[in-house]
Design a protein around this nucleic acid. Structure first.
Length: 817
RNA sequence: GCCCGGGUGGCGGAACGGUAGACGCAAGGGGCUUAAACCCCCUUGAACCGCAAGGUUCGUGUGGGUUCGAAACCCACCCCGGGCACCA
């Protein structure tokens, strides 16, 4: 079926509808892409991020899998032992929401979508080792999520505590952080509020330092992803010290600017700070303070996060500035976050703009402790300068003043140098059905007891009602909940939360190395052969979620002796989006171009080539329907060159043969280099130029030997890009081998060398003439040629040559006065 | 606000500091055809000079700068996209 409005301008000379299925079946039957651990060859472990089974491939998938498959085939031709597996991120909210909407169980729907997508991947010609296929919703996979949980739990890295979570009042459910967009529920746009629930966390903060430091090792990651992770981890150096409350009690504050301590004119506590209650009891401001705390606890995230509208309330209590004994008021304000630092700050309005704003609003004194530069017209000054009004720190510059202030705090026993992280522990509980159950049993006598390893997996039960009600749908399933305590044998209740699907994706790439193991998550020997990934390909949207969690879990597996590597992904590639009409293609916007239409009209090869050609792989790319006409036309020309009935002549090779052979070697160099650097969009035109030259050559007394040599190279270079048509041509030309098993061509530098190059002759930087010269021409010769040029002489008439800059053989510039 | 990207023909995009616009799309002209489609050939950044061959000037967001020479390097600014955002 042809896409409406997309008539193919090409009269097709090859039948993609016959060729493509033929080779797809052949590759599968011959098991060409099944991987094996081969100690005699270098390995190449190549993975595209496993997809959520959404039902059908879209153009973004096509782009992703085309890049991945190109690399799989290219590396295989270069002699690598390649592992390119595929799996399914098949747990999670979309399937569950579909189930709620239709009343059907998520499993059959998920599995039929997996079947559809598998079929479409095969129709794209993307080859994977399907013997290693995995799906996270299957018990033989999620069993090992539960194992991972228990390993973390054993070492104190999985723990439960009450914590504020995102709550959508409309949907009556908790939301994952990633489902909160600008403070709103991504599904119903309702402002999200915080709600306290008892939750399971993975202690990723224990790994903060290593996760930050090892980013420096990841040289083949995009800078922006490393920067995003660095910001997300957010290391801040400073000091923590205690502050006495007048009349008894104390609290700790964290600051990156201990040097400004003399400028502290008030303190601020987060509304949730535990000491607040004792401070306000009986004070004049108690009623007002309680009202404020109540209001901010119910305020939506979007309100609390909005910069500029600082509000707060005086507690009625005062603190003592430890540096100068000054009595300062203690406020409560929600611009101080309980989750960062100590949930309390010393406020120095002279040196912090937020404190300045607050002090101005509530008429609190402002003391500058760093001399601003001459003519400073700003408000708070956060830059460097000599300390003033600061006692023993006076005159010191920022760095020295910070060191001196910390030394003083430590000598006085008031505080210490500390490092604070922005990174929070990873909240992995979900009050949702479609996920891996957390393997914990709650016993009244024994407390929280881990499910013994030999009782895994804790199977997800079949249920009728998936609707979230603020607790897991599993909580009402009596036969699931009620069990016996593994420790005392008494009656006990199962944990009913399930795990975040990011737990699945944090380790799945280890499982590909040993996917059928029934006694452990994977054999470290097998994982040791394949890990780390040599190439990981996916969307940039996972920069700080999946890619950070995966690094954490890999480090953990390393620490417990199951992995040799500390970093899972040696080389990361993040592709741009496909857009249409200025926005991302999506069903809701109605701007989807279904790849099935192009499979039918132009064939998978033409579609793959268009994706490679249309834009640099890292850039977003705008879909245009006519572009694929061009790549199909190009494949037609290749087909005609390789199968046409040409008038070959018997003659000795001449200049034309040498030219074409030379071009073919240069093309091999260019295409190889471009593929290595992911410049697919420039590799394609190089092949077009070669094909055009070949077409011209074939039309004018061609030699069969020359033609064959060039056609062979062309087919080999196109093989990873457009595998079906090239396999068919390889077979038709009778080379007698499977193209996918062939060797990638290597250029001969001698043959690639050009006989002449174009010398550009400039006068004062402007091009005035061009000449063909030998590549090894000298500077003196180039200068003589330039000065001898008739076109140049016109410009030199009546002028004095002041300088000649010669860069043989490409350029010479005559400078005249 | 902060941190990354990025602004090149009608469009997607090429260009180790050295011929700007490769390659492709679209458009126009011609050939083939009874006709059309397909296919093939030619033209296609702008302005100007020339009968022609050819030539000149301008041109990579804006304004400066460095350089014999800048789309590329430096400074300032404008616009677009993305990420983070009361993190003390």
């Amino acid at each position: 079926m042809m896409a409406p409005g997309l008539p193919l301008p090409t009269q097709m000379s090859y039948d993609h509808k016959a060729i493509e299925p033929k080779w797809q079946k052949r590759w599968e039957a011959d098991r060409v892409f099944e991987a094996s651990e081969d100690p005699d060859r270098p390995k190449f472990y190549n993975v595209c991020m496993y997809p959520y089974p959404s039902g059908a491939l879209h153009q973004g998938h096509v782009r992703n899998y085309t890049y991945g498959d190109l690399l799989t085939r290219y590396k295989k031709m270069q002699g690598f032992s390649v592992l390119s597996p595929m799996g399914w991120d098949s747990f999670g909210l979309p399937a569950e929401n579909a189930a709620i909407a239709t009343g059907a169980h998520p499993r059959p729907n998920t599995e039929s979508q997996i079947a559809t997508m598998t079929d479409q991947m095969k129709r794209l010609g993307a080859m994977y080792d399907w013997t290693r296929e995995l799906a996270s919703h299957k018990p033989d996979f999620y069993r090992w999520d539960q194992w991972l949980f228990l390993e973390l739990h054993q070492r104190g890295l999985a723990y439960k505590r009450e914590a504020p979570v995102n709550w959508c009042p409309q949907d009556q459910t908790v939301l994952a952080n990633e489902q909160v967009v600008d403070g709103l529920c991504e599904r119903c746009d309702t402002p999200v509020v915080k709600r306290n629930l008892s939750q399971w966390f993975f202690k990723i903060t224990d790994y903060a330092e290593r996760l930050l430091e090892d980013l420096d090792l990841l040289e083949d990651w995009p800078d922006r992803v490393r920067t995003m992770q660095r910001n997300w981890i957010g290391r801040s150096e400073g000091a923590t010290f205690g502050i006495e409350v007048e009349g008894g009690g104390s609290f700790e504050v964290f600051t990156t600017r201990p040097d400004t301590i003399f400028g502290m004119t008030f303190c601020v506590l987060a509304p949730e700070h535990p000491i607040v209650d004792q401070l306000i009891v009986g004070s004049e401001s108690e009623a007002e303070a309680r009202a404020y705390i109540e209001t901010s606890s119910r305020a939506s995230e979007i309100d609390r996060m909005s910069v500029g509208t600082k509000t707060g309330v005086f507690t009625g209590a005062h603190a003592i500035n430890p540096a100068n004994g000054r009595r300062v008021p203690i406020y409560i304000a929600d611009y101080v976050l309980m989750g960062y630092g100590t949930g309390a700050i010393m406020a120095v309005p002279g040196q912090d703009q937020r404190d300045w704003d607050f002090a101005t609003k509530y008429s609190i004194e402002i003391i500058r402790t760093v001399e601003p530069p001459e003519g400073w017209k700003g408000e708070a000054y956060t830059g460097d300068g000599p300390a003033i009004n600061s006692g023993f720190l006076d005159g010191l510059h920022k760095e020295d003043a910070i060191a001196a202030a910390i030394a003083w705090l430590e000598t006085e026993g008031l505080g210490r140098a500390t490092v604070t992280w922005r990174l929070r522990d990873w909240l992995i509980s979900r009050q949702r059905y479609w996920g891996s159950p957390i393997p914990i049993i709650n016993c009244d006598r024994c407390g929280m007891v881990p499910v013994p390893m030999d009782q895994l997996p804790v199977l997800l039960p079949e249920i009728e009602d998936y609707m979230p009600k603020g607790q897991s749908p599993l909580a009402v399933v009596e036969e699931f909940v009620n069990t016996t305590c593994p420790s005392c044998g008494g009656p006990a209740r199962r944990e009913t939360d399930t795990m975040d699907t990011f737990v699945d994706s944090s380790w799945y790439y280890f499982r590909y190395a040993d996917p059928h193991n029934t006694t452990r998550a994977f054999d470290p020997e097998k994982a040791g052969y394949w890990m780390p990934l040599d190439q990981y390909i996916g969307g940039v949207e996972h920069a700080v979620l999946h890619l950070l969690y995966a690094r954490f879990i890999t480090k953990f597996l390393h620490d417990i002796g199951l992995s040799d590597v500390e970093e899972p992904f040696s080389r990361l590639f993040t592709q741009g989006m496909i857009t249409l009409g200025g926005s991302k293609m999506s069903k809701s916007k109605g701007n989807v171009v279904d790849p099935l239409d192009q499979f039918a009209s132009h064939g998978a090869d033409a579609l793959r080539l268009w994706h490679l050609f249309m834009a640099p792989p890292t850039d977003d790319a705008a879909w245009t329907s006519s572009g694929i006409d061009g790549t199909r036309r190009f494949l037609e020309r290749v087909w005609k060159a390789a199968t046409g009935d040409h008038q070959f002549t018997l003659r000795e090779p001449d200049e034309r043969d040498r030219q074409l052979i030379g071009l073919s070697h240069r093309t091999v160099m260019k295409v190889t280099d471009d593929i290595e650097r992911f410049n697919f969009n420039t590799a394609v035109p190089a092949l077009m130029i070669l094909t055009n030259a070949l077409g011209d050559y074939l039309g004018d007394e061609p030699r069969a030997e020359t033609a064959d040599e060039v056609i062979r190279k062309l087919i080999l270079m196109l093989a990873p890009m457009t595998p079906h048509v090239t396999h068919e041509l390889w077979e038709m030309r009778g080379y007698g081998t499977m193209l996918a098993e062939e060797t990638w061509p290597v250029a001969d530098e001698e043959l690639a060398r050009e006989e002449t190059v174009t010398l550009i002759i400039q006068v004062n930087g402007k091009v005035r003439d061009r000449m063909e010269v030998a590549p090894d021409v000298s500077a003196e010769e180039v200068e003589a040629i330039a000065l001898g040029s008739e076109k140049v002489r016109v410009w030199l008439d009546g002028a004095t040559v002041t300088k000649v800059i010669a860069k043989p053989p490409r350029m010479v510039n005559i400078v005249i006065g």
